[in-house]
Simulated assay, not measured.
Amino acid sequence: MLDCSIASGEFTPSGFQIFRKDQNCHGGGVAIAVNKNIEATEIPMQLPETEALLVELKIVNSKLLILVFYRPPSSNDPHLIPDLLELVTGIANSRKTRLIVCGDLNMPSINWAEYTVPTGDVPQALLDSVADLNLTKHIHEATYVKGNILDGVFSNVHCIKSIIVHKPLLSDHYIIDIETHLNVKDDERTERKI
């Protein structure tokens, strides 16, 4: 859980800036750590009760929006995640930029291989939203020690090169390592006369 009792320096590597939204009374808190060499700005969202954070990265000649969120397992609101996805997809489309969405879905009943759920409005609303917004799902293996896919990674365009899921260190959730196709350095050569 991430709350005001935990200083950013306790979990942020040196050379990184941290964006965070601490937990409310029911959640886990979210954070995004960005290398200080990358220009990053938090984008305010009009969903105050949602543990979600949206950050825009300026990378060479393009931009990338990254959304992280936490959905409490006790949440029965079928509109929570679909509304959030619709909001950030709209922001990404209006800015004509790439979007990566990462979050703790806490929906173990979803069969991601077949895009089905046995029962329930909440998981079905998420599946419908992912399809309606044309988001690509990138996690295909368990992200939780009990063998479920509880965490999701989605994108609106092909910008993810690879995802590696590592065994957990201090949590019951696995570590998700995402590599993108985006260059963070300007590879343009400067012409020089010798």
Rank of each mutant, 00 (worst) to 15 (best):
P73D: 03
S171R: 10
A40Q: 03
K58P: 03
P123L: 05
A92H: 07
N61G: 08
Y174M: 07
L150H: 04
E42Y: 00
L99E: 13
I175M: 13
I100W: 14
H140D: 15
M107D: 00
P82L: 00
R71G: 06
G29P: 15
P13V: 01
E179C: 00
V165T: 11
A113W: 09
F154R: 05
P44A: 00
V145H: 10
A52C: 14
R189C: 13
V122N: 04
E51Q: 12
E114V: 03
E86Y: 06
D187S: 08
L126E: 10
E51T: 05
D128F: 07
A33Q: 06
K96T: 11
A113V: 09
V88M: 04
Y174T: 06
S8W: 07
L182K: 04
R189N: 14
A52H: 07
A52D: 11
P44W: 02
T41K: 10
V122M: 05
R20T: 13
T89R: 12
V145I: 15
I110C: 03
K63H: 11
H26L: 10
I66H: 04
N93G: 06
L53I: 01
I194P: 13
P82T: 03
Q46E: 15
G27E: 14
L53P: 00
S62R: 14
I110G: 04
I178D: 09
